[in-house]
Design a protein around this nucleic acid. Structure first.
Lengths: 133, 133, 133, 133
DNA sequence: GTGGTCTAGACCACA
DNA sequence: GTGGTCTAGACCACG
């Protein structure tokens, strides 16, 4: 099974599911067009309430990662984010700033962070999915 | 004033304060040993509830960023994180993985992310407070 | 009270709330920065479940219409949509195409539709809230 | 082939078929009296379940767009909507209000909306099938 | 007080 | 079978 969560984590369950799916997409484990587990199936496998899975799938749809089709299932989207480029850049900067600030307080040097990033980038199949708007 | 928050942001106020202080430390705006504003002073400046500032300072102390001394105030710690190196590495990887996964879904290329990281690193005067191998 | 819904309508309750809020914003009844009724309050007034209101507020937040701040309330956002211009245009075209197709089947002429649109436009305080990204 | 649908869209398949037929009528691609593809034929062409096509044709008949004749097929109606004028006006206003409200939140100006409408109107050969005052 | 998360279980709509 | 909506009610987190 491709999606796992930790019920002990302080991170909300539905957010753990969201991140797990996004991560699987980035790593190529889930390809565009592929079908995700059904709501009930995933809920059973993760031992959580179906509503929590629904919630996660809703967030994934709003983020442009999946499309949900009534009666059919939930599928990995083949389109990318519809945000304006400026907004995309803002979000990228923000998430990196967080990581960098944490790295500083952990005592890492700039070079350490760059190396760690390079390693992360290798883990994902890093090719932009589609045109930049 | 060194700390700013955005009351419009959905991010909890105390977390904004926590991040702002951590960020100021990373940028060298706050040096080790330096005294932070008093709870009442900061609460007045930011126009927020003193309890919210107390909460932020508590979290900062728990994270090893500041030390609160009874009656004297709250000071930037000169100690680094006391976590084991392996645990630090894990945390760094995790925060970068988040950023990288988001970047993928925003449609960025590996090079874009590296450039953005370099820019972030330049924004902070990136020298570890204490090197810990 | 500014928000009303019709429990008989086939349109989902939460969507009715979403549209009512968007409409109130467009008409200037709700100004940027203004606070919406609390979840419990609105649920009581509309005689629906609080979860349904939460759902509506979530959708409004994802659409950039409001920001929800834990412990504080739900406020009309002063920022606009973060979508790429191309995507905005696509959405505008799509919603107009629907309206135009319906108008045709109702037997209206092009001029009728234009006049009706002019009337709708007058009903709203039609000034773009912010810069185009 | 005159009808196309997008299996990726979250919109229900039968609704896509309904809209595609209405749209084809408005554009003059389907003329009054003309015969639509048979249920099985269309289902095969669109690679969807025949039941879905049946459902779409039912809705189209209910909306007065087509007439289904037992054993003969499904034909574009030559009658207009038989609603009262006041009700038609109300429906037109409502669909435009939706579009206008969305346009506001997308940051468009009144002029933008008018231009976009004019473009939509040109796309369809806009002459009412039957004038009904 | 506010919103945020989660569960349990009902009933409806789509394919 | 699938997802979509809604209710009821619990408990947690923020200000």
């Amino acid at each position: 099974m491709l999606i796992r969560i930790d019920p002990q984590s302080p991170e909300p369950l539905f957010e753990q599911v969201v991140f797990a799916v996004k991560s699987a997409c980035a790593k190529g484990i889930l390809a565009p067009g592929e079908r995700l587990p059904s709501v009930r199936e995933l809920a059973r496998d993760l031992a959580i309430n179906p509503n929590t899975v629904v919630r996660a799938y809703e967030v994934l749809e709003r983020d442009g990662v999946v499309v949900r089709r009534q009666g059919a299932g939930c599928f990995v989207s083949d389109r990318g984010s519809d945000l304006a480029l400026a907004e995309k850049r803002r979000q990228l900067q923000e998430s990196l700033r967080r990581a960098v600030t944490e790295a500083f307080h952990l005592g890492f040097q700039a070079e350490d962070v760059k190396k760690a990033l390079a390693q992360c980038l290798e883990e994902v199949q890093f090719e932009s999915k589609r045109r930049q708007a």
